[in-house]
Amino acid sequence: MQKVLMVYSTVDGQTKAICKRLQTHLEAQADVDLVSLEQVAQLELEAYQQIVVGASIRYGKFRPELFTFIEQNKAQLNNKKSSFFSVNVVARKPNKNTPQTNPYMKLFLQQSSWKPDSLAVFAGKIDYQKYTWFDRTMIRFIMWMTKGPTDVSGCYEFTDWNKVEQFAQTLMLNR
């Protein structure tokens, strides 16, 4: 059975939730290891035939550790079947929810030396009640500026789970 490594970088857990959904679909045909970006350094990437990386955006940026991981493993990532997906709330907008139209994906592709075989963009989640006062205030302000939800008593999940499942199908085909 083929081995797939799924690496996630998440701030509030939505990227991990998306990875778990992908893992559920892939496990029928592959042995899938799901690990956080912080844990991946302990693994031997040579053991995997496919690598999937998912990363979230916070305040307009990916975590710096994502790019460190890519630079340290560039040869492995570029020589195996590999996929990358971004999770961000900007992707809630129809004109910004594809790899070609999402500003964070476009920026990632400019900044990264890795050229994944497949790409995806998923809208994230806003859960005001989980945030610190600072994050709640900042995210509310960003949502106000971008015409998103600003009621801090709410939780707003924008992830299109059908789109996640479609991406899982492409991952199975890319193996």
Rank of each mutant, 00 (worst) to 15 (best):
V87R: 05
D117C: 06
Q110Y: 03
T101R: 07
N95H: 14
V89C: 12
Q110S: 12
N102F: 03
N102C: 15
P116C: 04
V89Y: 09
V89N: 13
P99Q: 02
K106W: 00
P99A: 01
V87F: 10
Q111N: 15
R92I: 01
V90S: 03
A91T: 09
K106N: 13
S112H: 09
P99D: 02
A91H: 06
L109C: 10
W114Q: 10
Q111P: 10
L109N: 14
S112N: 13
P94Q: 14
S86F: 08
S112L: 10
K106I: 14
R92D: 00
T101D: 06
V89K: 04
P116D: 02
V90E: 01
P116T: 04
L109M: 14
F108Q: 10
P103M: 06
V87D: 00
Y104C: 06
N102E: 05
N102V: 08
Q110G: 04
D117M: 11
S113L: 13
S86Y: 07
S86A: 14
K106T: 06
S86V: 15
K93E: 11
S86G: 08
V87A: 01
K106L: 15
D117E: 12
S86L: 10
L107K: 15
P94E: 13
P103N: 01
N97E: 08
R92P: 01
N102G: 06
M105Q: 15
Q110P: 06
Q100E: 15
S113R: 06
S113M: 06
Q110A: 10
P116S: 02
P116H: 10
Q100R: 08
P94C: 04
P99N: 02
T98H: 05
K106H: 01
M105W: 07
N95S: 09
P116A: 01
F108H: 09
L107S: 15
K115V: 13
N95K: 13
N95D: 13
N88D: 07
D117I: 00
T101S: 14
